[in-house]
Structures are given as C-alpha cells and as structure tokens.
Write a protein that binds this DNA or RNA. Sequence first.
RNA 1: GGCGGCGUAGCUCAGUUGGUUAGAGCGUGGGAUUCAUAACCCCAAGGUCUCCGGUUCGAACCCGGACGCCGCUACCA
Length: 581
Amino acid sequence: MTQRRFLVTAALPYSNGRLHVGHIAGAYLPADTYVRYLRSTGADVRFICGSDDNGVAALKTAKEQGRSVEELTASYNAAQARDFAGLRIEFDIYGGTHQPEYVRVHERFSQDFFLKINAKGLFTKKSSKQLFDTQVNQFLPDRFVRGTCPFCKSDRAYGDQCENCGRAMDQTALLNPLSLMTQSTPVLRKTIHWYLRLDRMQSKLSEWLASKKDIAASGASWRSTVLNQSLGRIEAEGLPERAMTRDLTWGVPVPLDDPDAKGKSLYVWFDAPIGYVSFTAALCEKNGEGADAYAHWWKDTNCKIVHFIGEDNIVFHAITWPAMMLATHDSNDTQGVSGEYQLPHNVVANSFLNIKFPGQEEQKISKSRGMAVWIEDYLQQFDADPLRYYLTAVAPENARTAFDFDDFVSRNNGELLNAFGNFFNRTITFAHKYFDGKVPQRGTLEAVDVEQLNRCKVAVDRTGAELEACHFKGALAEVMALARSGNGYFDVTKPFLSRKTDMAACGRGINICLQTARTLTTLVAPFLPTIGENCARMLQLGEGWQRWSRACEAIADGQALGAAVILVKKLETTDLIADPH
RNA sequence: GGCGGCGUAGCUCAGUUGGUUAGAGCGUGGGAUUCAUAACCCCAAGGUCUCCGGUUCGAACCCGGACGCCGCUACCA
C-alpha cells in the first residue's frame, strides 16, 4: 500500500489579538489531533498555519494602540505562536502573510494567483461609488461609517446593517453618513476594482459540493453544516461577482501595470488562503526541498488537502477559495489534474464556543467585553492536556457548546483523572508493589482476559474510524470507554485479592491491565500528547509506540516498568481564573 | 425577508440505508470493594425523543405545519 499523503491547514488567525479557548476549540485543536493521528498511521503530513496580517482591521487596531502595523502584527504573531506551542499544537510552520520572513514569498504566490486568474479572463474590472473620507484620504469600510437608516430612520445604522431594524443595506444608501475615523462627513467617490467571476464557476462548484454529500464516493466525511450552508447559499442567491481588490496600502499590492491599480491591495480574503500555499513553499524551502516542492502538496492528485476552520469561515473555504483555485485551472477537471491546484478533500468546520462563568448566564465569547479565557492566562496556571481534553470532550462539532468552568473541573477530575489517570496509576503502582516493577507472566488466558484483549482491539478500530471521519468527540469517547473497561476488568479480576491466594491469576490480571494501558497509550496520544508520552514512559515503550498498528502489540513478560507518575492533577474550583476580566 | 441549524433522561450530549425493552457521561438513590490522586465497580430510579398532522405494517429518524432558540445573509478576519 502506498503511503497516504495529507496537507492539513488550520485557519490563519488574524494578528490583531490574542488567542482564546474558542479559537482553539474551533480549528486548531481538532487539526492538531487529526495530524497526530494521521502520522501515527504512517501518513506523510504537513501541517500549515500562520497569521493573517493584511487587511484594514490590523490597521485599525494599530492606530488604536498607537503602534505601527508591522510591530503590532509581529507581536501578535509571536504571541500566537507561543500559545500554540504551549498547548502543543505543533505546526510544521507558523508563517504570517506580512511577517518579514514570509512576506516576499507570500506576495509572489498571491500575485501569481491574481495574474493567472486575470490571464484566464475571470476578473471583471469595473467602477463603483464608495464613501471616501477626505481628511484621511481613504475609502471607508462599511463598519467605519455610521448614519441614519433609510428604512426605519434610526440613527444607529452602520454601512452594512441597521442596528435598530436589522436590515442590510449598501453604505451608499445611508442617510447623513459620518466617518467614524474622523467624525467628518464622507463624500461619494468613484473607485475601480477587480471582481472575481464567481458566477462563471457556480455550476462547477455546486456539482463539486453536491458530490461531497456521498461520503462513500468522495472518501471524505464532510459535515452536513458545511455542505448545507454552502449549497444553500448558492441555490438561494447564486454567486455574483465579488471584488477581490481594495483601496488600501497595507496588503499585497495589485500586480498590474495599470494606473487604476495604483494604491490598491488584494482583498484580505483573497490573499489569506493563499497563505496556506506560500507557507508550504516557505517550509519546503526551509527543508531544502527546492522552490517547486510545494507542488508535491498542492498540485498532486495523490495528496489530500484538509482545511480546519471555524463556522465563520465556511463560505470562504467551501466556495470562494475553491473558486479561486478553479479559476487557475487550464483543464476542465473540477478537482484539477496533476500540476493544477487541487480542490480541498475536506473542509472541517466547528461551530463557535460560548462561555459560562460561574454564577453567570452562558454567553458569547467577547474580546471587547473581556468575556474570554485567554490561552496565555490559562497556561500560566495549568497544563495543556486538561484543556485539550475538555475542549475535545465538549467540541462544538454539531452545534454550539459552552466552555463552563465548573464543567471543566468536573470533567478533569471525574473523567480524565478518575477514569483514565486512575486506571494507569492503580495498575502501575500494583505492578511495582507486588511484581517488582516488572510485567508479570501472562500465563494461560481465561475467557474474561480474552474479552478484555478483544475490547482493546475493538477500541483501536472504533477510535480510528471516528478519527478518519473527523469525529473527535466520538473518538475520545471510545478511548475513555476503554479506560473504563480497564477499571471494570480490574475490579472483576480482583488482583488485590488473588495476590494472597493465587499469584499466577494475580499476575495474569495485571498483565492484561498493562496490555490495556499499552493500547490506551497509543490511542490517547493524538488527543493528549504529554499524557501519552508519560504513559509510554511508565510502560517503558520503545520508539514508534505511537504507531496505530502497534497499539495492541503484546507487552513482554518480565519487561521493566518505569516509575509511576501522576498523569492528571486534581483541580479545585478555586484554582480557576474565575475573574472574567 | 431568504438560507441554514438546533429542540432526546435533572444536566451535557450520542443516536439515518425507519424495526425487538431509545443510549453514554455527570448528578441522584442503593449495594459492593480496598490495588489506586477517597479514586474504582455493580444495580436502580428517571424520557408522551418540543407540539400537531401525514406517509408506513411500523417514525426520535421521512414529509408538511406550528412554537421556541440560534447562526449566516460576503467591502468591518
């Protein structure tokens, strides 16, 4: 069997803020778990991420904080990289679309993309009128202009939507517009932009998405929310042309020798997904694999591209980004033939995570109101794995869920510690106490032992199947079920009694418990890497213990065991950062 | 308005080629046990699967409708 190959990406975080638990639960943790699992099956994988530095939002934040945008994005890029490392979310590369090391390669790829699409005639150049602030010499994004709603006459309307009646509108329809940058009255001015002909790719995209409904045929478990939302959008509204340039100097310059392109940048949503490609190229270069090695991942029909994102990114990753790649194709093949950009194998989206502070109602995570649990703060007090466990256990895979402080403590203590940690602890300490720290003789198995070994095999298959389908919550539940079965087996075979009457039976029981622990070690590692390593150390497993195919490999009689270590610490509610600010 | 999602035990949620007594964890009640970070194990109670109608021999599941909650609706990641 040939080696499977995957290019896995996690959404580029915008580099004007810190990371909180919602970001992690949405895209990064499931992606990291998936990558660790794939590698354990022997697949060749590259795991790509980096910050999204371009666009007007970074400029706005920089202005508010009185820093240069370069400094701002560099500092948040570094902070995000630290947070990921602290959680053991380990990308092969963490780039940044405007970071000094990556900006050149990123501009090159983005501009090549733009030029290729332009050459294929899939842009329309046309003019429109937009509000312009003459004091700062800048066109105003919708949210930067406020005025009176043309429908309900409320004065709480922004350029995109009225806060009072909720109706959406065009910014030019706003009465008495006011620039929020300078409080001055903006003027209407003509501007020219390049529009991507999404309408020309609509039918292909629609067929492509529809083909993903059949899991067996497409070989990928697309979540129905991703398909329904994307297909629903196309069917309901069709795909109009969308502007892919902006009047902005912070970003990737529009690469055209055209006076109309002067002072314009690519739309941040155009260049951001290309970051996945440019960072891959940077990684290949870093590895000394040459300038064209990225094509091995992006333009090879044998490589599967999987994007992990939050629900807010669905239409961009399931429609716009595939459309961009499609627009570069010379062939008529929707997926793309070898040598062309390959459309994603899967786009895995989670819903948002709400938050519930003790004594308060569940609410949306909010940066501005301080209603968030920041990774930086969390890591000052706790280890990565308890958070990884909790965020996987309550993962918003089908619907929104909430980070609840009390629930976090109770799941850590009641599930991870009492079920999983305790099973290892009682098994290892027993072996040290009564078998000199060595794996006791297995001897002749009885039905109850065979059953337990069989549970291990079944757990490996089930956990693997769930992970292949990106059902992380269900996969973790299978692992925990095996840990619980280990506790059940321990209680049924009662080695603490047989040690006084029948050492052979006692040893057999502990041997089977250690064997269960060995399987658990491999199964838990993609979810909880540090705990997995500690398990492996206690069992003194050699190199390659992560290999999925070796999860049930027999642990040898007489093998020495490592010292028992505490896998999971007990948490008190008072340990928590309960202050929402 | 349009599109999409959700509504299953006290709580958090699983649950599709529609089919015997609807599942798990936590919580509660009872029992058992001592190897273990007083952890574990067993048993039990607890559900008109939001409501109404339809299709069907049979519906939590399919269809129509109602009610409630939520998201998206692309220049602000």
